[in-house]
């Protein structure tokens, strides 16, 4: 996977305004520390422009170690910048990726049985339901939501702003879907799909696709 991210002065990083927000592209070649140095210099030159900004970071296939992540954060913090989310371009389902939820997600919440009307489950991390979510039931997760049954209630994935979050159900028939800051209602007259489906953000809308 390669991006047209190198500028003419190949030793400079590219910032692009995507729909999700201003995105920093870090190429996949060369060591990460190299690009950190480049980033540091670049920001130093344009301090006032970036100061206080919140950006997205596109890493492509590169995986960051916790140490690299904290180094990246350290550089950005120096210029009072924060990371909103990672990899806005990623389309791959189930790709391993960093989640930017603070505090750190506390793993997966496994719910056994039906989530009924009036029941609301909130979890810092991912939620997996072994059963149905009935109308009036609510799932709220900072990470992904997976329903091994019929999702008829409300699901809010990536509730703290993780636009990478996904909602998966064996049958997706929700009242409402919410991912990060985007809310969506099933369009009028839409048939309930047969078979498992996945909802995620594409551009500025939530799209549902067959899994």
């Amino acid at each position: 996977m390669s991006f047209a991210t190198k500028s003419l002065f190949s030793e400079q990083l590219v910032f692009k305004g995507l729909k999700q927000g201003l995105t920093l592209f870090i190429p996949e070649d060369k060591p990460f520390t190299h690009w950190l140095g480049v980033l540091d210099e670049q920001l130093e030159r344009a301090k006032s422009f970036f100061r206080g900004g919140s950006i997205l970071v596109e890493l492509g296939e590169r995986k960051l170690s916790p140490r690299e992540l904290s180094e990246l954060k350290a550089v950005l913090t120096k210029y009072q910048m924060t990371i909103k989310a990672f990899n806005p371009l990623a389309k791959k389902l189930f790709s391993a990726r960093m989640k930017m939820d603070e505090p750190a997600p506390s793993g997966v919440l496994l719910v056994k049985g039906t989530v009924r009307n009036g029941q609301r489950l909130e979890h810092n991390g991912d939620i997996v339901v072994k059963g149905d979510v009935n109308p009036g039931g609510e799932l709220i997760a900072t990470g992904d939501i997976i329903v091994l049954g019929v999702l008829r209630g409300i699901a809010h994935a990536g509730v703290r702003g993780n636009v990478q979050a996904e909602i998966i159900a064996l049958t997706l028939a929700p009242v409402q879907l919410r991912i990060a800051h985007i809310y969506s209602r099933a369009p009028e007259g839409m048939e309930v799909g047969q078979g498992p489906e996945i909802a995620h953000i594409k551009g500025e809308t939530i799209v549902v696709e067959r899994l």
Binding site: R116, N117, G118, P135
Partner: peptide
């Protein structure tokens, strides 16, 4: 049916 669902949750 909605209310019954709610009640089942409360009973459980």
């Amino acid at each position: 049916v909605r209310d019954a669902d709610r009640i089942i949750g409360l009973l459980q």
